[in-house]
């Protein structure tokens, strides 16, 4: 039910967290209820312009509730805000696993 996306630089749990949103290599989809993860390659990462906006639209289509990234551009921010998607900004160097662990630890 609750879908979380973590921007990732690779498609495994040991990959590093990617601090970019629109130009992240991969998106890690995490189901917070079951703890299941899946990875989707970011097809907008090489877009000449509007990568953040396109990625944000994609997130809205996928009905994502929460996005964890290093930063969001102004356009992506505006769009995600409008569609009530929670944005989380982390500035630490972490692996995807470390973030998943942090979220699932109650």
């Amino acid at each position: 039910m609750s879908k979380t996306v973590i921007t990732s630089s690779g498609n495994t749990l040991t990959s590093k967290f990617d601090k970019r949103f629109g130009r992240a290599e991969f998106f890690c989809l995490l189901d917070e209820a079951t703890g299941q993860t899946s990875f989707i390659a970011n097809e907008f990462k090489d877009a000449n312009h509007g990568a953040g906006t396109k990625a944000a639209e994609f997130m809205v289509e996928q009905q994502v509730n929460k996005i964890i990234s290093g930063d969001f551009g102004p356009k992506a921010k505006e769009l995600l805000e409008k569609f009530d998607v929670q944005m989380v900004i982390l500035q630490e160097e972490l692996t995807i696993q470390a973030i998943v662990d942090r979220i699932s630890k109650k």
Binding site: K66, D84, V88, I89, E92, I99
Partner: peptide, 21 residues
Amino acid sequence: DCLARFTIPKNITARTCPVCH
């Protein structure tokens, strides 16, 4: 606690950190 910055959209009522709770 974990220095995460985040938004709380209208549809979420819990006032907790989305990362470390």
